[in-house]
Design a protein around this nucleic acid. Structure first.
Length: 883
RNA sequence: GCCGGAGUGGCGGAAUGGCAGACGCGCCGGUUUCAAAAACCGGUGAGGGUAAACCUCAUGCGGGUUCGAGUCCCGCCUCCGGCACCA
């Protein structure tokens, strides 16, 4: 092998070592130039990365390196979301203590990130399970507690029987646990919650400031999740006791149509009302059964509406109507007031319920041009119409009626306008071991008492049997539980639940700015220098959970004065990358996955007397689906072997070329060859000509300026001039593709085109030919550097420049050099291309018309036709309309 | 049901309302080789035509606006994602 052969292993090792030693990614506390905080969501240490994860970090690395070349002081930190269920479950599976397992996994993943050539300021590395870190997570808990935003209550919660812990609403997906899919059940427990509902409106409002910098999809998901609804409160009265029973409705215009009231089975009022009445036994039986019901699962049929009459009546505030009070399955305790005014005529749910239990239906909105007859209705009428049977509002259009009736309620002291949100408070207690202990103790005398800040962290004990068993494992550790009350000094017991890991990831980007601070969580002055995160990159699966929680916590920290109010939104720009997917094959005979991966639980064992690949190739009883890479599907591709076989740069190039980064992409083992071939051609093109290129060595900027001067002076001719201009066009295209929407695939394609052009062009051996060629190669090297950093560093050095290429500025395209002298214009006849003309780029319409008239094939197409109209779009196209 | 996103060659994917298919993969032919791989050169949407010139059709389906529509408007179909007994 000659020294000029492309050997990725050698040069990649060389430059990785160089970046490490020269601390290329080391970021000072005080930025010497405009700062750029580039952050990829920190991962939980699962153990190994596959190429799907890799894409994420590569994208972040491209942005960081590009911004560096643009002259920014770039902060790119990395750390580990090391606390929490996934990490603990992984440890349990391996039979290791999470502390050890997390450490192993971090080491391995860090190696893999190095392998991928991703640059981070590792001096800022943090792991959320380190006491120096979770000390401040606990501190944040206390800050919320102080502000009345953390509270404890006994309520039914979502419980995962497999993970043996309570879950937040956000962690319940399709009625199952987000992590393991097990059906979630309801369980009553004392739990700690954060009052995120108090921030619902500001969480909603501030989304407006992110309109152009966050994906629309994420904004929408957050808005849906917060679920603001505007309506009215109407206060009904329980006839027997005279107590008030308020309801929330978005349709106050239908108040006159109320024929019953539905109240949630969980509602405490029921217990009191039926006590000692003949209804008690049956109603309580019904309620107790419903209180344990499982959540509604999407995709499944709508649950049957059930209910039972409580024996009580309520009085309608607007017309004094006396209507029965029912306990009903479809009334939800935790939305509105837990009671619903039921208008069967104009609400589909109420309609179904009324039909089932034979409750009267009363029409109060009439559609335009029709007349509703109760006996003929098969569904509720929910469209607009005119109010009828509504006392003083008869004849009012119902949309107007909504406002008027709301005001009417307010005047009479029976309610008024009200806003509701569907977001619920955030449940943060977990009955598992691997998390930060909640810093609270319970004292017989003082009750609930927070741990003083100076006593933080409340350390998680190591010697614990952490098998999940439905109660926090810490509850069995006496040395942990028994303590003294920080208020009175008497005996007290510690809270034994741990904080869910979402809180750990709510503030890690603040800690990255000041990672070693042992006096405070972070310095406000440094936060002001570095926040916000200019570019946040991560998976769309965090659209609600992580991103909503984080926005909430940051707002609280702002309100508490630890972070400036100007940083209420921590992530100025958000990018959600698509997943890398791969085909998964399943056997149509046995239904199992056809794979030889050891991570597949029960692979297909049907014998076809050939290799699995051959069987798949021949499609023998196999179906395929495109799935996200995962161990359980056996479709993961490891970057390690690919880096070894092709080199890191090739892998990076392929992952970037695979498609637009915001979309999912299908992995193909074949296509990576294209990336390899391109790098090889690039390398060979430079090395083959190196001697000649060295003959005109010099500073890139000087060369660039000289050539531009020569171009302007008309000294560049023919193909030399062409290549010079194409180089400028490529610079413009690549820069545009990166800046506009991270179209790395087309940016790379542009450089490929330039290389193709260069290889197909015979430039003279003269001085300017050599210079232009050098200029083209140097520009290509700079343009490719963020994507394939190792090979570019090497070529940059070979071309006689001092490393690092990332200290060099990004190339600039010159407007004048982009302009073409002559252009070819297609000439259409009635929309079909029938000829081409070559004209000056700035040709006038008359000149174009003359050229068209002189064109033979156009003339031929026009034979026997008359020209109706000629549309000339200067610089683009000519279209002749002819009959 | 409601709200998003997508649908383009054999495949991944390009196209400010202006030549559809850039770039790459795959495939076909050639050069090189004892042979193969690699590399290099050429070809490659479909149909017709003579392997030329040329013609016709083609961006999920059906309409519309326009000199001109993958792109804009209206109505559908399919797939993916989110939300949903939220009053």
């Amino acid at each position: 092998m000659s020294p000029k052969d492309y050997n990725p292993q050698i040069i990649e090792d060389k430059w990785k070592a160089y970046w490490n030693q020269s601390k290329l990614f080391k970021c000072p506390d005080n930025p010497p130039s405009e700062k750029f905080y580039c952050l990829v969501m920190f991962p939980y240490p699962s153990g190994t990365l596959h190429v799907g994860h890799g894409r994420n970090y590569i994208i972040g690395d491209v942005v960081a390196r590009y911004k560096m070349m643009k002259g920014f002081t770039v902060l790119t930190p990395m750390g580990w979301d090391a606390f929490g269920l996934p990490a603990e479950n992984a440890a349990l599976k391996r039979g290791l203590h999470p502390k050890k397992s997390v450490r192993d996994n971090i080491d391995n993943m860090k190696r893999q990130l190095h392998l991928l050539g991703i640059g981070y300021d590792w001096d800022r590395e943090i792991a959320s399970c380190d006491p120096e870190y979770y000390r401040w997570t606990q501190w944040i808990f206390l800050k919320l507690y102080e502000r009345g935003l953390a509270y404890r209550k006994n309520a039914p919660v979502n419980w995962c029987p497999s993970c043996n812990t309570a879950l937040a609403n956000e962690e319940v997906v399709n009625g199952g646990c987000e992590r393991c899919g097990t059906e979630v059940v309801q369980k009553a427990l004392y739990q700690w919650l954060f009052r995120i509902t108090k921030y619902a409106q500001t969480l909603l409002d501030d989304l407006d400031t992110l309109e152009n910098t966050w994906p629309k999809k994420v904004l929408l998901m957050q808005r849906n999740w917060i679920g603001r609804s505007e309506g009215a409160r109407a206060v009904f009265t329980v006839e027997s006791t005279g107590e008030e029973l308020p309801i929330y409705t978005t349709r106050p215009d239908t108040l006159w149509g109320v024929t019953f009231m539905a109240i949630a089975p969980e509602h405490p009022l029921i217990d009191r009302l039926v006590k000692g009445t003949p209804y008690e036994e049956k109603v309580m039986e019904f309620c107790n059964r419903l209180r344990k019901r499982k959540r509604v699962v999407r995709g499944e049929e709508e649950p049957v509406k059930e209910g039972i009459f409580t024996g009580h009546y309520v009085i309608n505030p607007v017309n004094g109507d006396r209507v029965p009070l029912w306990a009903a399955s479809y009334a939800l305790m935790d939305y509105g007031t837990g009671a619903v005014m039921a208008v069967p005529s104009h609400d589909q749910r109420d309609f179904e319920f009324a039909k089932k239990y034979d409750i009267p239906i009363k029409v109060v909105i009439q559609p335009p041009g029709k007349k509703l007859v109760v006996s003929e209705m098969t569904e509720a009428y929910v469209e607009e119409g005119e109010m009828v049977n509504s006392g003083p509002f008869d004849g009012t259009p119902n949309m107007e009626g909504i406002k008027k009736v709301t005001a009417f309620l307010k005047e009479r002291g029976k309610g008024g306008p009200e806003v509701n949100y569907s977001i619920r408070d955030w449940l943060i207690s977990r009955q598992r071991y691997w998390g930060a202990p909640i810093p609270i103790v319970y004292c017989d005398k003082c009750g609930e008492a927070p741990i003083p800040e100076k006593d933080l962290p409340v350390e998680l004990p190591d010697e614990v049997d952490f098998t999940p068993r439905g109660q926090s494992p810490l509850a069995f550790v006496e040395s942990f539980v028994n303590t003294t009350c920080p208020k009175c000094g008497g005996p007290a017991k510690r809270e034994t639940d741990t904080i869910c890991q979402w809180l750990c990831s709510c503030w890690y980007f603040l800690r990255f700015i000041d990672p070693k601070n042992d006096r405070e969580a972070f310095s406000r002055a440094l936060i002001d220098k570095w926040m916000p995160v200019d570019q946040y990159i991560g998976g769309v699966e965090h659209a609600v959970l992580h991103l909503l929680y984080t926005r909430f916590v940051v707002k609280v920290l702002c309100d508490a004065g630890y972070v400036s109010q100007k940083h209420r939104e921590p992530f100025a720009s958000l990018f959600t990358q698509g997943m890398i997917c791969k085909r998964t094959y399943a056997c149509t005979k046995c239904g199992h996955i056809v794979s030889d991966s050891p991570t597949v639980h029960e692979p297909c064992r049907c014998d076809y007397g050939m290799s699995l690949n051959d069987r798949i190739e021949k499609r023998l009883d196999v179906t395929d689906t495109l799935d996200k890479m995962s161990k359980s599907k056996g479709n993961v591709v490891s970057p390690n072997e690919l880096c070894e076989k092709f080199g890191t740069d090739t892998l990076r190039l392929y992952e970037l070329f695979i498609g637009p980064p915001q979309y999912d992409a299908e992995w193909s083992d074949k296509d990576i060859k294209g990336a390899e071939r391109f790098l090889l051609r690039f390398w060979n093109a430079v090395t083959e000509d190196l001697e000649r290129l060295s003959g005109c060595a010099g500073d890139y900027e000087t060369l660039s300026a000289r050539l531009l001067e020569a171009f302007r002076g008309g000294e560049l001719k023919g193909e030399t001039k062409h290549v010079f201009q194409e180089t400028h066009r490529t610079i413009a295209r690549v820069t545009g593709d990166i800046e506009s929407s991270w179209q790395f695939n087309t940016a790379i394609a542009a450089v490929m085109e330039l290389l193709n052009t260069l290889r197909a062009t015979k430039m003279g051996d003269g001085d300017s030919g050599c210079k232009v060629k050098r200029y083209a190669f140097e520009s290509m090297t700079l343009l490719l550097a963020p994507f394939v950093p190792h090979i570019c560093e090497e070529i940059w050095e070979m071309l006689g420049h001092a490393p690092s290429i990332f200290k060099h500025g990004w190339p600039k395209a010159n407007e004048a050099a982009l302009k073409r002298d002559e252009i070819e214009m297609p000439v259409q006849v009635s929309g079909k291309v029938r000829g081409r003309i070559t004209v000056a780029a700035d040709a006038t319409e008359d000149e174009v018309r003359a050229a068209v008239q002189g064109n033979e094939s156009v003339a031929k197409s026009l034979e026997g036709k008359t020209i109706v109209k000629m549309v000339i779009v200067p610089g683009k196209i000519v279209n002749i309309v002819a009959k």
